[in-house]
Amino acid sequence: MGPRGLSRILAVAANTFRETIRERVLYNLLFFALVMTVCGLLLGQISIRQDEKIIKDIALAAMDLFGTAIAVFVGVGLVSKEIERRSLYPLMAKPVTRDEFLLGKFAGLSFTLLVNVMVMAAGLYLTLLLTGRPLDLRLLAAVFPIFLSLVLTVAVVLLFSILFTSTALAAFASLILVVAGRFSDVIRNMKEVAPGAPAWLIQGLYYALPNYRNFDFKDRVVYGDPVSTGDLGWVTVYAAVYVALVLGIALAAFRRREFV
C-alpha cells in the first residue's frame, strides 16, 4: 500500500472519527462513565483508608466497561449503517478500495476510543489531584491494556457487522464474544463442570476466543503489584496478532460482500 492508499485510509478514519464524536450514544456513555467516577469518589469518602483504591478501581472499571459499550454499540453501526442507508454506494465508485475503507473505519473508531480512554484517564488523575491523592503514573500500565482490549473489540465488532446482515444480531454476537472472552478461565475449566465435553472443543474454544483476561491489569496496578515492560509487550503482541487475524477475516468477507 502506497502513500495514496494510506492517505485514503486516513480520510476514511478522519471521517469515522468525526462520525463517532457526533454520535449521541457516545455522549450518553461518556456521561454515565463520569457519573460512575463521581460515585467512586463519593464511595471513597465513606470508606476509611480504602478511598484511593476505590476511586482507581471504579474509574478503571468504568473506562473498561463504557469503552467496551462504545466499541460495540458505535462499532456495530459503522459498516452496517452505511450499507442499510446506502451511504456506501457513492463511495464504492470512488478510488478507495474496500480494504482501505474498512481499515479506515477501524482506525477511526480506534482513535475515538483512544481519545475516550485519554479523557477518562485525565478525569481519573484530576479526581486524584482534587482530592489530594498522589498522581500514580503506574495507573497507565492498566489503562494501556484496556485500550488494547477495546481495539480488539472494535475488530471483532467490525467482523460481525460484516458477517451478519442484522445490526442487532451483530451487536449481540459481539457482546457474547466479549463476555465469553472475559470468562476464558471458565472455558478452560469446563472439563470439570461438563466432563462429557470433548477436549478438542474446549481447547479450541479457549484458544479461538479472545482472552480478555490478558488485558486485565487493574487489580495488579491498584494493589501496587509490579507490571513489567515485558508483560505489557506480550499483551501488545497478543492484541496485534489477534486484531490482524480478525481484521484479515473481516477484509476477506467485506471484499466478497455484495450490496444488492
Binding site: 476514511v12 471521517n15 468525526r18 446506502r86 478510488p95
Partner: peptide, 22 residues
Amino acid sequence: NPNFYDYLTPREYLDYAGRLFG
C-alpha cells in the same frame, strides 16, 4: 435515491469525497 452521512454538511462531504480522489 442517494443517501449521505447525515452528520456532515455538503461542504464537509465534498471535502471528504475530494480527499478520496487525492
